[in-house]
Amino acid sequence: MVAVRTTNSPTLPDNPRHGIVLEALVKWAPLLVLLVLIAFFALMEPRFLSIRNFARIGISSSPALMVAIGVTFVILMGSIDLSMEGTVSVSAVLFAFAFLALGGTLASLAWLALPVALIVGAIIGFINGLIHIRLRIPSFMASLAMGFVGTGFALLITGGDRIRIEDELFRSLLTVRWFNFPIMCYVAMALVLVAWFIQSRTKLGRNFYAVGGGEELAHASGLNVGRVRIMGFMLAGAFYAVGALLAVGRIGIAETATGNNFMFVSITSVVVGGTALWGGIGGIWNTVVGVLIVNVINNGMVVIGLPGFIQDGVLGLLVIVAVFLSTDRKSVSFVK
């Protein structure tokens, strides 16, 4: 599509290959960036390439990956969801309460707390979608407000306390390792496949692309756009809840702060991975690459001895570059 547009444009000389090369570059740039980053950190510090370090990257990536995959569905539709911090906190806290109330170990009925968490996430996503669609409020503001409500709600029900989850079976997400990687990495990978299946093999997944590619066209062809959007937000909420479960599994604590930082990191990951904010372009695999880029930078800085807090600034700049590269400036007249 980009190629067609650029061939017709008067500003670029009549060289159709130019557009195709640019398109390929934009498509593969994220993977290239990831490989260059890995090579860079490996040259600076050979220990970066050890299996132990890769496991460390895997552990830090897993919860973020789930949240980023959730928001990928929403961004594919051309909307945005900024509620992840609140949703993760509420899911984590309610999971912990249910888990402890039902017996406190996965061997008992407490396993029911897992689906409870997913349902909580989906419900919050549903409310997000309803507010966005029914009240006709732009999604970034509707979801931002819902995120604040979620964080407040989590604070309200915990009273600021931390809830410890000490069940060994649940903590085996982190403590039991298969081939050097903890179970949570495999859970995350399995869910990537689920997400990929939804994206490419179901009607819902195709509808996300249809809405993102051109909402008016999708509407004109008889698609219930509002329902697709609400489903997208619900799916996103369920994935945030999985992220919440992995985050609780990683540190063994559920609290209001469980959701902190997920917004910046997940949006950054999706955008850096090459999914366009305008919708319709990109997908799950882009997000996998994006999350790895973010976590490799994060981990690499620590490994080569740079202070970790610079990463927010570096990521901020990367986001700008990524959105810049992925925007087809001929099709957009102005942005707000």
Binding site: I80, F140, M263, F264, I267, T268, V271, L277, F309, I310, Q311, D312, G313, V314, L315, G316, L317, V319, I320, V323, F324, T327, R329, V332, V335, K336
Partner: peptide
């Protein structure tokens, strides 16, 4: 650069936070 303001300001906020 045609980056919507809610993203560009989040990104610049990240830079400010780091500083």
């Amino acid at each position: 650069l045609y980056v919507p303001s809610f993203v560009s300001t989040i990104a610049v906020g990240g830079v400010a936070y780091s500083v």
